[in-house]
Measured scan of single mutants.
Amino acid sequence: TLFEALYDYEARTEDDLSFHKGEKFQILNSSEGDWWEVRSLTTGETGYIPSPYLAPV
């Protein structure tokens, strides 16, 4: 399942991933609570992002 960003987000740590509203992601790991490890389909980068900022496509 692909997810889309509902809002912009600016990374706060080196493990976070900055992204823009509308960017699409592949979920790599969603078992860590509200922070999911994802791969951006736009940039190819991986990192953690807050799951409340995402919605299924």
Score class of each variant (00 low, 15 high):
residue 25 F to K: 01
residue 10 E to D: 10
residue 21 K to C: 08
residue 25 F to V: 03
residue 10 E to L: 10
residue 22 G to K: 03
residue 42 T to M: 10
residue 27 I to F: 10
residue 30 S to C: 14
residue 3 F to I: 03
residue 37 E to G: 04
residue 8 D to G: 05
residue 5 A to Y: 01
residue 52 P to V: 15
residue 12 R to S: 12
residue 32 E to C: 13
residue 15 D to R: 15
residue 11 A to G: 12
residue 56 P to Y: 05
residue 12 R to C: 14
residue 32 E to S: 13
residue 46 T to Q: 09
residue 49 I to C: 07
residue 20 H to S: 13
residue 27 I to Q: 03
residue 26 Q to H: 10
residue 17 L to M: 14
residue 12 R to A: 12
residue 32 E to A: 13
residue 7 Y to Q: 09
residue 7 Y to R: 09
residue 15 D to C: 15
residue 18 S to G: 07
residue 7 Y to T: 08
residue 39 R to K: 12
residue 13 T to L: 10
residue 51 S to I: 06
residue 20 H to Q: 12
residue 31 S to A: 11
residue 44 G to A: 04
residue 14 E to N: 13
residue 50 P to F: 15
residue 41 L to A: 05
residue 9 Y to K: 03
residue 46 T to H: 09
residue 35 W to G: 03
residue 1 T to L: 14
residue 24 K to A: 06
residue 13 T to R: 14
residue 21 K to S: 06
residue 13 T to Q: 11
residue 8 D to S: 08
residue 9 Y to I: 03
residue 41 L to K: 03
residue 31 S to C: 12
residue 8 D to K: 03
residue 1 T to N: 11
residue 11 A to P: 06
residue 26 Q to T: 10
residue 23 E to T: 06
residue 44 G to V: 00
residue 21 K to T: 07
residue 5 A to M: 03
residue 16 D to Q: 15
residue 27 I to L: 11
residue 49 I to V: 15
residue 26 Q to I: 15
residue 26 Q to R: 07
residue 10 E to T: 13
residue 20 H to N: 10
residue 46 T to C: 08
residue 28 L to E: 01
residue 36 W to A: 02
residue 47 G to E: 00
residue 47 G to L: 05
residue 16 D to N: 11
residue 54 L to P: 04
residue 42 T to S: 12
residue 24 K to I: 15
residue 56 P to F: 05
residue 55 A to H: 11
residue 38 V to L: 01
residue 2 L to C: 09
residue 45 E to F: 10
residue 48 Y to H: 08
residue 8 D to T: 06
residue 54 L to T: 04
residue 29 N to V: 07
residue 10 E to G: 05
residue 47 G to T: 03
residue 18 S to T: 09
residue 14 E to R: 11
residue 6 L to E: 04
residue 27 I to D: 00
residue 11 A to W: 02
residue 1 T to D: 13
residue 14 E to Q: 12
residue 14 E to D: 12
residue 29 N to D: 12
residue 3 F to T: 02
residue 11 A to T: 05
residue 35 W to A: 06
residue 5 A to L: 09
residue 12 R to K: 13
residue 47 G to H: 06
residue 21 K to Y: 05
residue 41 L to R: 02
residue 20 H to F: 12
residue 51 S to E: 05
residue 34 D to T: 11
residue 17 L to W: 06
residue 4 E to W: 08
residue 28 L to G: 01
residue 39 R to Y: 08
residue 38 V to Y: 02
residue 27 I to V: 14
residue 33 G to M: 10
residue 9 Y to D: 01
residue 49 I to L: 06
residue 23 E to G: 01
residue 22 G to H: 05
residue 38 V to N: 00
residue 28 L to N: 01
residue 18 S to Q: 04
residue 33 G to Q: 11
residue 44 G to N: 07
residue 47 G to S: 02
residue 32 E to R: 15
residue 50 P to Q: 11
residue 12 R to Y: 09
residue 44 G to D: 05
residue 19 F to W: 05
residue 45 E to S: 09
residue 9 Y to G: 03
residue 39 R to E: 05
residue 16 D to E: 15
residue 48 Y to K: 12
residue 19 F to I: 08
residue 6 L to V: 08
residue 1 T to H: 11
residue 33 G to T: 13
residue 30 S to R: 11
residue 29 N to P: 02
residue 12 R to Q: 14
residue 19 F to T: 04
residue 19 F to K: 00
residue 8 D to M: 02
residue 34 D to P: 09
residue 34 D to Q: 10
residue 10 E to C: 13
residue 54 L to S: 03
residue 26 Q to M: 13
residue 42 T to K: 13
residue 27 I to W: 06
residue 53 Y to Q: 06
residue 14 E to F: 10
residue 49 I to N: 00
residue 20 H to R: 14
residue 7 Y to N: 07
residue 44 G to T: 02
residue 53 Y to H: 09
residue 10 E to N: 10
residue 48 Y to L: 11
residue 31 S to E: 11
residue 45 E to K: 15
residue 44 G to Y: 06
residue 37 E to S: 06
residue 16 D to L: 11
residue 5 A to F: 01
residue 14 E to S: 13
residue 15 D to F: 15
residue 44 G to H: 06
residue 25 F to E: 00
residue 22 G to L: 02
residue 36 W to L: 07
residue 28 L to V: 08
residue 7 Y to D: 08
residue 48 Y to C: 11
residue 40 S to V: 05
residue 41 L to H: 05
residue 38 V to T: 01
residue 31 S to F: 09
residue 52 P to A: 15
residue 22 G to E: 02
residue 47 G to V: 03
residue 34 D to M: 13
residue 21 K to H: 05
residue 50 P to R: 11
residue 31 S to H: 09
residue 15 D to P: 06
residue 8 D to A: 06
residue 10 E to V: 14
residue 26 Q to A: 09
residue 2 L to T: 09
residue 42 T to D: 10
residue 40 S to R: 13
residue 30 S to D: 13
residue 42 T to C: 12
residue 47 G to C: 04
residue 29 N to T: 08
residue 56 P to K: 07
residue 14 E to I: 12
residue 35 W to T: 08
residue 3 F to P: 00
residue 16 D to C: 14
residue 35 W to C: 11
residue 37 E to K: 12
residue 56 P to C: 08
residue 29 N to F: 06
residue 42 T to L: 14
residue 45 E to N: 12
residue 24 K to L: 15
residue 5 A to P: 01
residue 31 S to K: 10
residue 41 L to E: 07
residue 34 D to H: 10
residue 47 G to D: 00
residue 8 D to Q: 03
residue 26 Q to V: 14
residue 53 Y to N: 08
residue 33 G to S: 12
residue 41 L to I: 11
residue 8 D to N: 08
residue 33 G to C: 12
residue 33 G to R: 11
residue 29 N to C: 09
residue 35 W to D: 04
residue 11 A to D: 02
residue 16 D to M: 14
residue 15 D to S: 14
residue 55 A to D: 08
residue 19 F to V: 07
residue 55 A to Q: 13
residue 52 P to L: 15
residue 45 E to H: 11
residue 30 S to A: 13
residue 47 G to M: 06
residue 21 K to I: 08
residue 14 E to H: 12
residue 13 T to K: 14
residue 3 F to V: 07
residue 55 A to P: 05
residue 39 R to N: 02
residue 47 G to W: 03
residue 40 S to M: 05
residue 37 E to H: 14
residue 52 P to T: 15
residue 57 V to D: 06
residue 12 R to N: 11
residue 7 Y to C: 14
residue 9 Y to P: 01
residue 41 L to T: 07
residue 6 L to P: 02
residue 10 E to K: 11
residue 17 L to F: 14
residue 55 A to I: 11
residue 35 W to Y: 11
residue 38 V to S: 01
residue 23 E to P: 00
residue 52 P to H: 15
residue 55 A to V: 13
residue 22 G to F: 05
residue 45 E to Q: 14
residue 8 D to C: 08
residue 3 F to Y: 15
residue 50 P to H: 14
residue 37 E to F: 15
residue 3 F to C: 07
residue 13 T to V: 08
residue 43 T to Y: 01
